[in-house]
Amino acid sequence: MTLTDTINGAARRLPAWPIYIVGLIPAGGLFYLGLTGGLGPEPVKVLEHEYGLIALQLLLAGLVISPLRKYSKVNLLKFRRAIGVLSFIYVTLHLLVWLVLDVQIVSEIIKDIYKRPYITIGMVGFLVMLPLALTSNNWSVRKLGAATWRRLHQLTYVAVILGAAHFVMLSKGFQLEPLLYLAAALGLVALRVKWNRRPVPQNG
């Protein structure tokens, strides 16, 4: 039995629901650390950043699943919904920390959303993910039809690029980490693009 078979066999036996429970542990854990001084002297920014980063990481993880199946035959498709929904939960927590604990002032929040491009982009990313989270259930798949549902969920590509761009834009100076996330997002989306296979004429 190959490693792929072992993984696929294990994946078939394991249920998807524990992903939600395990996935929410960092949310609670970080909040608890923030309350008890474990996130340093300025817990709000750390919490905001960590929730946002986890959301982006989960979005990327969700986008790895179908190329993984295509190129290595490892099939983790049954966990994809849980990963996607968790990503939305973390984006929501990230937004809530920003609204309630960070900016706090309603007029400033509104001003920030339309005046600061990186916040505008972050908000659009959240709005793009909203219909995806709402339709992440079997009933919606049936209601919309598989083809329409799949088309709708291609918005994930938009969300991940917006999310990574948001990270790049909020960084001070020239930093490597956000650029690596953007490269990963662009790379995973590029894998979905059906490139024109016609041979390119060679020069000289």
Binding site: L35, V44, L170
Partner: peptide, 20 residues
């Protein structure tokens, strides 16, 4: 600042629920 307001500040050490 082009990316954020400078009208208020977050005082370090106030914890999660500190007012700006």
């Amino acid at each position: 600042h082009p990316r954020w307001s400078q009208a208020t500040e977050r005082v370090i050490g106030g914890g999660l629920f500190a007012k700006r």
